[in-house]
Simulated scan of single mutants.
Amino acid sequence: MTAFRALPLAAAVCAAVLPGPAGPASATPSVGVEARILSQSTLDGQDFITKELTIAPGGSTGWHWHPGQVYGVIRAGTLTHYGSDCAVDGIYPTGAAITEQSGPGYVHLGRNLGPDPLVMWVGYIDPAGSAQATPVSNPGCPFE
């Protein structure tokens, strides 16, 4: 399978967890997140990026939103996903696909509440040169 054909699958993985460039001083940082680029290309003004994200037990993506499309697949562990209302809006076990909405109106956070590392393949389709995620401050939730 070519890297481009695998993009929708890998992209389906993500949804949550890529720290982008530094945001405002009050932005919440990711904790325990490692990212590895699997493939990257630009075509017709859009970046196509696939990453493997690993979140350590107890780790978090930090609060953020995405400027473009995000798709991911959970390869190991379980992702617990929260909306800006502090409620869990999804629990994604190994093998589950995830997509996320785009834009600053969809602030969210992903956490690894399990005892093992969480591994995701995540695909991003963004305007060329943009960050995959924009960090923001905690919307008032009692956790990061």
Rank of each mutant, 00 (worst) to 15 (best):
F4Q: 15
F4A: 15
R5M: 10
A6N: 14
P8K: 11
L9G: 08
A10Y: 08
A11N: 12
A12P: 03
C14M: 09
V17D: 02
V17C: 10
L18G: 13
L18P: 02
G20F: 07
P21Y: 01
P24W: 02
S26R: 14
A27C: 09
E34I: 11
E34W: 07
S39H: 14
T42A: 12
L43C: 10
L43N: 06
D44P: 01
D44H: 00
F48I: 14
I49D: 04
T50M: 09
E52S: 01
A56N: 01
P57G: 14
P57C: 08
T61H: 13
H66R: 10
P67E: 03
P67I: 07
G68I: 15
G68F: 08
Q69I: 15
Q69V: 13
Y71F: 13
G72Y: 05
G72S: 09
I74Y: 03
A76D: 09
T78Y: 03
L79Q: 04
H81M: 03
Y82L: 05
D85Q: 04
A87Y: 02
A87L: 13
V88E: 00
G90K: 11
G90M: 06
G90W: 09
Y92V: 01
Y92R: 03
Y92D: 02
P93T: 10
T94G: 03
T94K: 07
G95F: 09
A97G: 10
A97D: 00
A97I: 10
I98N: 04
Q101F: 07
P104T: 13
V107Y: 02
H108L: 06
G110W: 05
R111Y: 00
V119W: 00
V119Q: 04
M120Y: 04
W121I: 14
W121K: 05
V122K: 00
G123R: 01
G123T: 06
I125Y: 05
D126M: 11
G129I: 15
Q132P: 06
A133L: 06
A133K: 01
N138F: 10
N138P: 10
P139L: 00
P139R: 09
C141W: 01
P142I: 08
P142F: 06
